[in-house]
Structures are given as structure tokens and as C-alpha cells.
Amino acid sequence: MLRFLITVVRRDVLLAVRRRGDWLTAQFFFVMVVSMFPLGVGPEPSMLRVIGPGVVWVSALLACLLSLGRLYADDFRDGSLEQMLLSPYPNSLLALGKALAHWIINGIPLLLIAPVLGIQFGLPAEALLILVLSLAIGTPILSLLGGIGAALTLGLRGGGVLITLLILPLYVPVLIFGAGAVEGAMSGTGSEAHLSLLGAFLVMSLLIAPWISSLALKVSVE
């Protein structure tokens, strides 16, 4: 079972490494969206400090959705998804592996880029730490919930926009707890409560999302 999970993850990571161009697109998208906000609202440092956490988090959601559209689509097109679904292991394990791979490929780079962007918005050092921490807990949730959307919209016309429509409302709690944690750190009200709620949401997503994704895959492939 564990070997199967590792194989799924290793395969996706290897494919991403072989196609670095696609992978870099999502990362640059994140950087660019974040950089547009100061241009839109003006360079006032006090204002930027207030909107910073929210801007970074919203951009992370969008960057995540951008790359999620292809989570299953390539494998669906070339027939590999069928082969994976026929494997003797439970399909929810496949969905978990896919989400995990998505997080490693797209989530972890966000964690590494985010502090740099936070500095652009004048966030203090402590807030930067919480920003990374909240992203570390929150981005796996984005991959897990997004996997459901990717499975549901498999092979549909306009799947990329559709997945945004389906999944963005479900991301609301992650956004609120994630950005709230950073604001809490900045305003001195503390961020433990936010982070633990985010953690609880992560545990719940881990338990439920792979199972629903596997059902959705079955529905979509049929």
C-alpha cells in the first residue's frame, strides 16, 4: 500500500521535473498576481502591511487552482488514469497520492516564495514565520479539496474555469483561518487558535477528500 502511494507521488514528481516549464508557470503566476496588488492600490506601506496576508493567501488559492486543472487531465487523456484506477489498491489511495504530489510540486514552492513576497508588503519577521506556517498547514488542504474538483471536471469543456467555480467557495475557511493567523500575529491577538482550526480542517480533509475524489474519478471515467 505504502509502496503504491510512494510510486504515485514519485511518478508525478518525476514528470514535473521532466516538464519544468509547466511547473514554473504556476509559480510565476503566484508571484505576478501578488505583485499586481501594490500597483493597483498604491505603495502606501501601512496599507500594504494590512492587505499583505490576505493578498498572499488569495494568490496562493488562485495559483493552486491554476495547476489543479491538470492534476488528472494529462493522465486521463493518455489512458494512464484508467490503468491506475484498475490497480489492486483502493482508488482513494491514488487520490491521496495525487494530492500529495500536487502539494509537493506546487505547494512547497509557494511556502518558499511567500516570505519574499511578504517582505515586499512590509510584513514583520514574526508575521512572515506565521505566514509560512499557515501556508504549510493550509496548502495541503487546497490540494486535497482541489483534487475533488479536478476529478469532477475531468475532460469537460472549460474545465479550468469550472474547477475555480466549484472549489473556490470551499476554500473560504482555509483563506479565513490562514490569513487570519498572520493578521493575528501582527495585531498581537495571537495566531494559535487560527492555526489549530486550520489543522483540524486539514485532518478532516485528509480523512474525507481522497475518498470523495475516488468516487468522483469513478463517475468521471465511466
Binding site: 479539496l145 475533488i148 469532477l152 471536471t153 469537460l156 469543456r157 472549460g158 474545465g159 469550472l162 466549484l166 467557495p169 470551499l170 473560504v172 475557511p173 479565513i176 483561518f177 482550526l197 480542517f201 478532516m204 474525507i208 470523495i212 468516487l215 468522483a216 463517475v219 468521471s220 465511466e222
Partner: peptide, 29 residues
């Protein structure tokens, strides 16, 4: 977006259920 009725039914139902699990969490947050 889905043409095949069987798939549209089931996909919609799954999304509906995910939504209903999420609504209390969304409301709370």
C-alpha cells in the same frame, strides 16, 4: 457542463454533498 446524464447526476450529487459537509465549517469560519 456535463453532457452524459448519468455522469451529470452523480458528479452534481458528489459536489452537493461536499458542499453540505462544508457549509457548517464555512458558516463558522
Amino acid at each position: 457542463a456535463i453532457d452524459a446524464p448519468r455522469r451529470a447526476d452523480r458528479a452534481g450529487a458528489l459536489l452537493n454533498l461536499v458542499g453540505v459537509i462544508n457549509i457548517p465549517i464555512i458558516y463558522f469560519s
